[in-house]
Write a protein that binds this DNA or RNA. Structure first.
Lengths: 341, 341
DNA sequence: TCTTTCAATCGTAACGTTTCGATCAAGCAC
DNA sequence: GTGCTTGATCGAAACGTTACGATTGAAAGA
């Protein structure tokens, strides 16, 4: 591959002049610029990003660290982030943490060793040691979807507490009194928020909060399936279930079907997050939708703005919390008189 | 960050000795090695991958270039590839080509400029110029899922022709005679193969191949929806539909539902590729499953084997074509007497 | 005792950039 | 003609490694 040296030679100028021509064309004479460009063109010159990054101490790559690459949410997020980053001249390097904070920190180290320009992270840790590590990171960081409380970092997500609140309100309005939530792991920010939103709604309606009705589905379909099985075989089984994620909604739905409960006749089901194939799932699930592409674009822009800022750490943390949209499907209905409160 | 120089200083040895210690510990005295390791540990030294890559002319990253990051197939593939690559000490950089060959080649250039060690690619081009560009690439390449005919490159995928054949055979065995296929864009390898498998099955059964029954759904749900609408409103409508991808199966299913056709009573539907939420979709779709994790692991290994080989281009191209598995759901049944042939 | 050999270690030249201070010639005022 | 300014260009050092040839010093062979 042609190097800057070759270009300099064929253009008959010094290496530094070639470099200058690309960095700041106005500072060389029009004639020189033309000669340099012609030579570069002729040789098919492309600057070596490795050399550039080494010199500059920073590469034109952003890292993305998420809990599960293969989930539909992150799939769409990654796609949109990659597109936005590319538009702004950055490549994307991604890794899967499996939701494990240890792994996450190790990957964080690997990424920063690569001198990435910035990192989009969905943080899964909760310990203070973990928090220290996050805050100590010198490369720009933006939290997306999940958040670590107390870390003064940019944060982009949709209002997940409100999402839970909207769905719970909806179920209450339909007349439900025994509403269960299949939650995520509560040490996770989003999971905790969804519990909060749920409680808020109940309290606002003057309904008691019954901890028995909060079961941990670990954000996984299999766990949710099992929890739903347990939930629905209890004497005081709920008349409505709020699944805190789409995967868990599917687990729950499957359990209901296998137990022979009709939805929404016997039990209502509502969920957070869109399901790609929601159109063909019967019943059509009642859910709150997030604008994933919007989250992706805003977070990528936050990150790159910070990256390109002259004093990245002096920027005060920004936050965007998007309002989700309630979609009422056919999976929720008033409780039947047999089961109703 | 500590550099190799700092380590050398605190260990009281030359820089080159530190380098040698990490590269080939047996070639330094045990005492020196211990001192170097201690110093490195003390300073928290991590070699700068940018410097290493610049010197070596190759980085420890692999690129992945796919048509749609957000599709469930590639989501799972990426996850497994990333894991395997990481195990072998490589990071993954990924980009979305949107199925556009132009974009693909541009990205290929960007990736090779980064001196990636190797590239996993799902090639979407078909022109000879495109083929030349692929073959001219000096970094190791492995084709996955899609393939460019005639390029002497490693290739990993499941036997997609057989998949189509299996499903068509199944439908024929049930008694169907008018079987439509909603195909992908036929200039794509996988799409063409799926058509071939379908034709093979028909011919083997002595049935005529009717080109009217082959409609292009472009591997997209919306297109498939429209094509199904068209297909099912014809006088000689098919009694069975084979959708060449999961997305297209969903589009077709939705169209059927909206037209009021019961599946499988009025029309059978079968599809290629697993659907993550197949469990809760009614009816349970008859489909062929591919072992995506296996594809991912084999392709990553092919790529890294080639990367780490001393003469990568002398290795003869390897090929793994996995046998898919037929799952018979409840979406296929014998044709009803009214519509039957 | 004098070479020879060999393992251990070292110095240095790359890899391809960027950046900063130095140089140079031309234009201008005096 | 001298001194200044200014715009264009240049040379060289640096970024953090690797790898090769050179240099040790001590053990081994004659």
């Amino acid at each position: 591959m042609a190097t800057i040296k070759d270009v300099a030679q064929t253009a008959g100028v010094a290496i530094s002049t070639v470099s200058l021509t690309f960095a700041n064309p106005d500072r060389v004479s029009p004639d020189t610029a033309r000669r340099v460009w012609k030579a570069a063109d002729l040789l098919g010159y492309r600057p070596n990003p490795l050399a550039q990054s080494l010199k500059r101490g920073r590469s034109r790559m952003i890292g993305v660290l998420v809990g599960d690459i293969s989930s539909p949410f992150f799939g769409r997020l990654l796609k949109a982030v990659e597109r936005r980053a590319l538009e702004r001249g950055y490549l994307m390097i991604v890794a899967d943490t499996d939701g494990d904070p240890e792994r996450e920190l190790e990957l964080l180290d690997q990424f920063t060793a690569q001198r990435i320009a910035g990192l989009l992270i969905s943080p899964h840790g909760s310990s203070t040691a973990y928090g220290r590590r996050l805050s100590a990171c010198k490369t720009p960081l933006v939290m997306v979807d999940h958040r670590f409380r107390g870390a003064p970092l940019d944060y982009v997500a949709s209002d997940t507490r409100m999402a839970a609140r909207m769905l719970t309100d909806h179920l209450i309005n339909l007349g439900h009194r025994r509403i269960a939530q299949i939650t995520g792991p509560v040490q996770l920010y989003t999971a905790a928020e969804r519990v909060e939103g749920y409680k808020e709604a109940l309290q606002a309606a003057g309904l008691p909060v019954n901890d028995d009705l909060l079961v941990d589905g670990r954000y996984r379909d299999a766990e949710s399936y099992a929890q739903t099985m347990r939930l629905m075989t209890r004497a005081d089984r709920p008349t409505a279930i709020l699944a805190a994620s789409n995967m868990m909604a599917l687990g729950a739905l499957q359990a209901l079907q296998e137990l022979g409960y009709a939805c929404p006749e016997d039990v209502s089901l509502a969920t957070i997050d869109d399901i790609p194939w929601s159109a063909v799932i019967k019943p059509k699930l009642t859910m709150v939708l997030q604008d994933i592409e919007q989250i992706a674009q805003v977070s990528a822009d936050y990150l790159l703005d910070r990256v390109e800022s002259t004093s990245p750490d002096k920027l005060t943390p920004r936050e965007t919390v998007l309002i989700p949209r309630l979609f009422i499907g056919s999976s929720t209905a008033p409780p039947s008189s047999i089961n109703g409160a």
